[in-house]
Simulated scan of single mutants.
Amino acid sequence: MGAQWSQFFPPKPTFTEANVAPQDGKVFLITGGASGIGFELAKMLYQKKGRVYIAGRSEETAQQAIKNIQAAVPEGGSLAFLHLELDDLSSIKASVEVFKGKESKLDILWNNAGVSQPPVGSVSKQGIELQLATNCLGPFLLTQLLLPLLEAAAAEDTNAPGSVRVVWTSSQIVELSAPPQGIIMDELHQPPKDKARNYINSKTGNWFLSSELARRTESIISVAQNPGAASTNLFRHTPLVRYLAWPLLHTPVLAAYTELYAGLSEDITVEKNGCYVIPWGRIATNVRKDLLDAMKPEEEGGSGRAKEFWEFCMEKTRDYH
């Protein structure tokens, strides 16, 4: 339980903006970057001269976020909005094409956006349980479509292996509440009428996707992270939680340090591809054994559950590539 306690009450961050070198020429994409943790991360990257894209559904909200960042950081890199609707698989390819029209490479993708516990029965544009669609299928498809740009960045940065990354957002709730082996696959086909359980499944899915991408690529680092409990709009569907959990909630900027570490820390080497990052920027060393087993394929002595989930996502998104 000590490992979990240290995630509820993490030590002070040791990796902040002060540890980040100038990021001139680097291209970053943050989903959900207009508010909360993503907003704070965008501000940090802009301050370090990065080319930062804030991806989301509302241009008005993103443009206001951009104005706020520019007002707080008078001299930075660049900020731009990218329209993206993760709950509509049919629209994601068009968003990627717009991005490709502006950039020839992508150094880091932060799959930061997510939805938590909307009303039971909420579904995506394709009729898929909303949390599974928004938190897993949308980011999975987005990442697949952006892989050529990530690979282009890796080919350019041959002197810095491990600098091109995809960061996936999981949650401490996975270790606390996921069933043995992480996901019961039948629940993906017939979601339970339990919005909390569906959220857990989606966050476990994020971790599984990170692990599988790391297993399948050599030039790109794939990292899953629990950013830490922060008071953000993620609780808009569960406002009571914000009050009941108030002693455990931290400022979004602290959670942004977790994401900054996952994306830019040199602690995360090629040899540590697929690692799991915990607040406020530490590589986890004590993870539930059954989850680790689930992330190993059967030929390596695991259960292959993560591979099974990856194949599920591939099938669900096949018509939208």
Rank of each mutant, 00 (worst) to 15 (best):
W5F: 14
W5T: 13
S6V: 04
S6G: 04
F8V: 12
T14W: 04
N19T: 03
V20H: 08
V20S: 11
G25E: 11
G25N: 09
K26E: 08
K26Q: 13
L29G: 02
I30K: 09
T31I: 08
S35N: 08
E40T: 00
L41W: 06
K48A: 12
Y53R: 10
R57M: 04
E59K: 15
A62Y: 05
A62D: 09
Q63A: 15
K67T: 09
K67R: 12
I69M: 09
A72S: 12
A72H: 04
P74Q: 06
P74N: 05
G76W: 02
A80D: 15
F81E: 05
F81R: 05
L82E: 06
E85G: 04
D87S: 12
D88C: 07
D88N: 13
D88L: 00
S90N: 12
G101K: 13
S104P: 01
K105Y: 15
I108G: 05
L109C: 09
L109H: 05
W110R: 03
S122A: 13
S122H: 10
K125W: 04
K125V: 13
Q126T: 06
L130T: 06
A133L: 14
N135M: 07
L137M: 03
P139Q: 05
L142S: 06
L145S: 01
L146E: 04
L146K: 03
L150N: 09
A153H: 09
A155T: 07
T158P: 01
N159M: 07
N159P: 01
A160D: 14
P161N: 04
G162P: 06
G162N: 08
S163M: 08
S163Q: 12
V164Q: 12
R165N: 05
V174G: 06
Q181D: 13
I183W: 09
M185I: 15
L188R: 15
Y199D: 06
N201H: 11
N201D: 14
T204W: 07
G205S: 14
G205W: 12
N206H: 02
L209R: 03
S211P: 00
S211A: 14
R215W: 12
R216E: 06
I221L: 07
A224Q: 04
Q225S: 06
Q225C: 07
F235Y: 15
H237S: 13
T238K: 15
L240N: 09
L240E: 07
Y243L: 06
T251A: 15
T251H: 15
A256I: 00
A262S: 10
S265T: 00
S265C: 00
D267Y: 01
I268D: 10
I268N: 11
T269S: 11
E271Q: 14
N273P: 02
G274N: 00
C275W: 01
I278A: 00
R282G: 00
R282N: 00
R282K: 08
I283L: 07
I283H: 03
T285R: 06
R288S: 05
D290R: 15
D290W: 14
L292W: 02
A294L: 08
A294C: 05
K296H: 00
E300P: 03
G302Y: 15
S303F: 15
G304Y: 10
E308S: 05
E308Q: 11
F309I: 12
E315G: 13
D319P: 01
D319E: 13
